[in-house]
Amino acid sequence: MISQILGGVMLIYLLAAILFLMAELWSSARLKGAGRVTLWLGLGLHTGALLGRWWESYHLALGHTPAAAWSEKLQLIIIQVPLSNFYESLIFFAWCLPGLGLLAFRRHLQGYLGAVVALLASLLLAYASFGVDSTIKPLMPALKSNWLLIHVVTAFLGYAAFALACGTAILYLFQERRPRASLPPLPQLDSLIYRTTVLGFLLLTLGIATGAVWAETAWGRYWSWDPKETWSLITWFIYAALLHARLLKGWHGRRIAWLAVLGFMAVLFTYFGVSFLLSGLHSYLT
């Protein structure tokens, strides 16, 4: 049922992307409005599906671990947040893109920028629906922790912010080569890249720190040089370099845009590459 809804959300995001593109090509305000409404609709349904899966996951766990007191129930709700395997992480990542995009870009989330975000979210959902096992499995002991929620949420919101920065950076590079009146002007794109990068950096830092605290309670080591940890640190270095280049050396525009793209490559490797190519503490993701 929830998988079907998510399949529908995938199509709605795709429709939003098409509407944004058409609005851009025919410079139609009405289509633009339709695109926004469609994106909001998709996000609403997507949120519902996430909550539904959370509810379902909680009830399955209740079957394994009966909880009577409200504090036990609350504890179970927290640890049963649907963020415990690869499928659920993809669904949440796809949710973060339009969610964070509407928050960070506000009215700029339309046109090509809106189309890029909606299309990316749609692709992630398509991959999750067709390529990944979607069954809800009971939690393994290592994941039974209150830190799961905050660690995964901050990490993926960070990934999504970097995805937005990368999408904006790509538009910047196109806009610089062949300026189009329909795209936001360069300084505005530049400022959006910077803002989303700062947001992502804050969230990635929180994700790493909460992960370290969790690892300390689970294994007695806040840092184990697990490949995912190491790659998140490499990603952090790249964005730290970007921020220093911009704030201290006054880098702007094209060079920052390329760094944002490079940083997102590292994010993608941290997320997918490490899970598929290298084994480690995070390997339950696959």
């Binding site: 490949p227 790659w231 270095f237 201290l248």
Partner: peptide, 20 residues
């Protein structure tokens, strides 16, 4: 800041080796 960037690059390269 040059030294910082240089060191970050080296550390990133060493970390990549460490994961491969």
């Amino acid at each position: 800041i040059r030294l910082t960037v240089f060191l970050l690059l080296i550390l990133a390269a060493v970390a990549v080796i460490g994961t491969v």
